[in-house]
Amino acid sequence: MSEKQKHASAYWKENVRYLFILLTIWFVVSYGAGILFKDALDSIRIGGFKLGFWFAQQGSIYAFVILIFVYIRLMNKLDKKYGFDE
C-alpha cells in the first residue's frame, strides 16, 4: 500500500470515528432525553414547559445544529492534519 493510500485510509477511519461519536451524541439527546428519560426530565421546567417536552420538540434540533458546526470544525482540523485542505 502506498503512503498516499495509508494517509487516505487513516483519514477515513478518523472521519468515521468522528461521525459515530457525533451521531451517538445526537441519538442520546434526541431519543434518550426526548423519549427514554422524558418522565425524569419533566420535573424540570424551562419557560413554563417541561424539559422532556422541550427536548423532544426543540432541544434535539438545537443539538443537531450544534453538532453540525462541531463536525465542520473537526473536519477542518482533520483536513489540515492529513494535508487535504485547500
Rank of each mutant, 00 (worst) to 15 (best):
A10G: 02
D79Q: 13
F55I: 01
L36W: 15
W12R: 06
I35K: 07
L67G: 00
F27D: 02
L19F: 13
Q5M: 13
F49Y: 07
F49L: 04
F37Q: 09
F55M: 12
Q5S: 11
Q57V: 07
R73H: 12
R17F: 14
Y11S: 03
L78R: 11
L22N: 05
A63E: 01
D79F: 11
K13D: 07
V28I: 14
H7Q: 12
L23A: 04
I68K: 00
V16E: 11
I44C: 08
W26N: 00
G32P: 14
K77L: 12
K50E: 14
L51S: 12
I46Q: 08
Y71A: 04
L74A: 03
Q58V: 07
S30E: 07
Y31E: 10
G47H: 02
A10T: 00
V28A: 15
G32V: 13
G32M: 04
A33H: 09
D42W: 05
W26M: 00
W12N: 14
N76R: 12
I25E: 15
K6E: 12
D79H: 15
L22S: 05
L67D: 00
S9I: 10
S30M: 03
F49R: 02
Q5V: 07
S9P: 10
V16S: 12
M1T: 08
I61H: 02
F55S: 04
E86G: 04
K50F: 13
F84G: 12
Y62A: 03
K77F: 06
S43V: 13
Y82D: 12
Y82S: 04
Q58N: 07
V16R: 12
V28D: 03
L22R: 01
R73N: 02
K6Y: 05
I61W: 01
Q58M: 07
K77P: 03
E14R: 03
I61N: 01
Y31P: 13
K38V: 07
Y18G: 08
A56C: 02
L41E: 06
F69R: 01
Y18H: 11
I46R: 01
K77M: 10
K6G: 03
K6F: 05
Y18N: 12
F84D: 10
S60H: 09
E14S: 03
F37M: 15
I66T: 08
M1P: 08
L78V: 04
L74D: 03
I61L: 06
W54Y: 11
G34S: 08
S2A: 09
L19S: 13
L36T: 10
I25R: 11
G47N: 07
K13T: 13
A40M: 13
K80E: 11
Q58P: 01
V16Y: 13
S30N: 14
F64T: 02
K4N: 14
G83D: 07
L67K: 00
F55Q: 01
F49H: 02
V29L: 04
A63T: 01
A33M: 15
T24D: 06
E14N: 02
F27Q: 02
D42R: 07
D39N: 14
I46Y: 11
N15I: 02
K13A: 14
Q5D: 09
D42M: 09
V70G: 00
F20C: 15
L36Q: 09
K6S: 06
K13L: 15
V65P: 00
G32H: 05
D42H: 09
S9G: 09
N76C: 00
